[in-house]
Design a protein around this nucleic acid. Structure first.
Lengths: 232, 232
DNA sequence: CGCAGCCTTGACAAATGTCAACAAACGTGG
DNA sequence: CCACGTTTGTTGACATTTGTCAAGGCTGCG
């Protein structure tokens, strides 16, 4: 693993508490691999052999049932995924595929569990990470159960806007068909939802979004920190 | 705290790894309280001052937004709730109310965090608990995004049946209006969903459910361990 | 240029929610 | 133990939301 990537991984909150020696030994069994876009890295139901870390690119976590499928979340650089499965030594609940060319580090789950068993600091770091993940999913659950698709889209746009710096104009970060799936609707419905937000000053052309009337949109969206604020 | 309850709490997986002394000291700041039915124990957004443990009775975790509300889960005896908020020292994401007369133990969050910081075994137990919770919510999310309400109900009934011992006849464990909310639908819709399952051999009278044709229902429900199996 | 994939639109169907009425079940106080 | 009132559950009629199918436009790339 190149030195710069080693440092990237080392700098993750998850590994911060590890002694240099412990970290090095954990990394000994690890390897890094490049994947092209649209490669299925893991398939739900498979045993969780590796903890994955996205070094560059991005990964889609999704799930299928009975011919349908849905995107559950996106993993971006310098985050891990499927930590819970690794810890519990249980099968993956979600599949993962690269959205673009990506570089992924793989650490044998066995090693992660072994380190976790002996290193209290590591265990505490994992707790923090898991608590964060748990709260994210709970928020997604609330979003889905308490809001219509139009409301979800409105709040998503506000979140994206903030993420992009708060200006009136910003870009959608991914394909609309995937955005639709993330928001729990069909692509057709998303198209109509964008039109449905026009009365609140939302203009979409291609991947570019303009929010003409911030107050109108916010009044309609009624964002709630306990659903929409990623940090709390 | 009466001795039998002390032992109940002591026997939780979460506290198993604690040395007797550590556990006792953690319990020193704790207290136990009886609540009547329908009391709101915590309100979403409040700071998480206590880790709660249900000793007897049951507790509904729910959430509200913009005049709507939804039940997210039920906590039964000898489980904790809002562990993630306690650990992160973040506001509750869900409100909690007693469903019936209940006995609840409260441990100051500060003490939990302090113990967690110094006791690696406790940290590991918390990880296991959180990983479990995380996976439960992910399953709920998949259930919600991949299935229609009729399919959710069918799978819920199969789960209840198994939970009740697997016989063809069993009882619903809670009010239909609440079941509707848990399943993400209105009470009216649930009524119709029950009728909608009649063709698959489901008969409901009051709170009693009879599954006449197990194979038909299972074929329709298409249960999936990665969504419906609480243990994986 | 031409193909393939994504996005949009329209027409329609299915699923779900709302409102209103009523029936059934439940709990309380007499 | 009964009567009463409140809550819960059911049903019908209807509105809204969401999904499905089919067609066509746009875009990017070989």
């Amino acid at each position: 693993m190149p030195d710069s990537e080693y440092r990237d991984v080392r700098s993750l909150d998850l590994f911060a508490p590890l002694a240099e020696e412990t970290f090095t030994s954990l990394m000994r069994g690890a390897y890094v691999q490049n994947f092209p876009a649209q490669i299925e890295l893991i398939h739900e139901g498979d045993p969780s052999d590796f903890l994955h870390i996205v070094i560059s690119g991005s990964v889609d976590l999704f799930s299928s049932w009975n011919g349908r499928d849905t995107s559950l979340s996106t993993v971006r650089p310098n985050s891990t995924f499927i930590l819970a499965a690794t810890i519990k030594d249980a099968p993956y609940l979600m599949s993962a595929r690269t959205l673009e060319k990506s570089r992924i580090a793989l650490i044998p789950s066995r090693d992660v569990r072994a380190t976790f068993d002996v290193d209290g600091g590591f265990a505490r770091a994992i707790v923090t990470e898991l608590a964060q993940s748990y709260r994210s999913v709970v928020k997604a659950q609330k979003d889905l159960k308490l809001r219509t698709s139009l409301e979800r889209l409105a709040n998503y746009l506000l979140g994206q806007q903030r993420h992009a710096g708060g200006g009136a104009v910003f870009e959608l970060e991914f394909e609309k068909r995937r955005l639709a799936s993330v928001l729990g609707m069909t692509p057709e419905n998303l198209s109509r939802a964008f039109r449905g937000l026009q009365p609140y000053g939302v203009i979409v052309t291609g991947t570019r979004v303009t929010i003409d009337s911030q107050p109108d949109l916010e009044r309609f969206a009624a964002p709630d920190p306990l659903i929409d604020d990623p940090s709390t």
